[in-house]
Simulated assay, not measured.
Amino acid sequence: MSSIDPARLSAYIASRICHDLVSPISSVTNALDLMDEPGDHEMKAQAEALLHDGAEKAAARIQFLRYAFGSIGLNAGAADIHEARKITDAFVSSHKPSVEWDLQADHLSFSHVRLMMNLVMLAVESLPRGGVVSVRIRSEAGGLTITLTAKGDRARLKEE
């Protein structure tokens, strides 16, 4: 297994963050532009809905990316599984796929949660036309097993 240059890894992570924020922030910008235009009440209502949707998606993605890539994964101890699931649900709902959970673990470390979130991100990215991301986590005597399955039309991993 080859290692990745830290500078290249940092560039990949920064690129990923920007990629995930472009769409919802563009929605917010477009909505603000529409609200500045003279127009009917219905158009203003649509602009307001677009503004709320874009802001919610951006917030969900920022929170997820902060957890998945941030320093929280470097903490010792157990992560709050319910909080990680809530953050992941919000992130996935800001994309086309849905997520199904099958959790049978008493606790997860922050590192495990971070790994799971990064796998979820790969699974979501592999489903450009939507589908289902299934997350299965098992705590067994031999350790922890995290399994993700992505099913949907034209599911694929990009080469990069």
Rank of each mutant, 00 (worst) to 15 (best):
R138M: 08
S10T: 10
L108V: 02
D33M: 03
A105C: 14
G152T: 08
V99K: 01
T88C: 04
S109K: 05
L51K: 11
A55T: 12
A60P: 06
P38D: 10
A141H: 15
R138T: 07
T149Y: 02
I13V: 15
M117E: 14
S134Y: 12
D106W: 12
Y12Q: 13
A7S: 14
A58Q: 04
G73S: 02
F91E: 08
G73Q: 04
L115I: 12
S10A: 07
A31L: 03
D20N: 11
L122H: 02
L122E: 02
E56D: 14
S93L: 07
R154F: 13
E37G: 02
D40Y: 12
H41N: 11
I25F: 11
S23V: 13
N75P: 03
M1G: 14
H112T: 03
R66M: 01
D53L: 09
E48C: 06
D53F: 13
G77Q: 09
A47C: 08
D20K: 00
E83F: 09
D80P: 06
A60I: 04
N30P: 00
V135P: 00
M35P: 06
G73F: 12
A11N: 13
I87E: 01
G54K: 00
P6F: 07
E140A: 09
S26Q: 13
E48S: 04
T88L: 02
M1H: 08
A155Y: 01
S109V: 06
S2K: 05
A45D: 06
G70L: 03
S26W: 09
I13E: 10
S94I: 03
L148N: 13
A60V: 04
M117I: 05
L9V: 14
K57G: 08
L32F: 13
A45C: 00
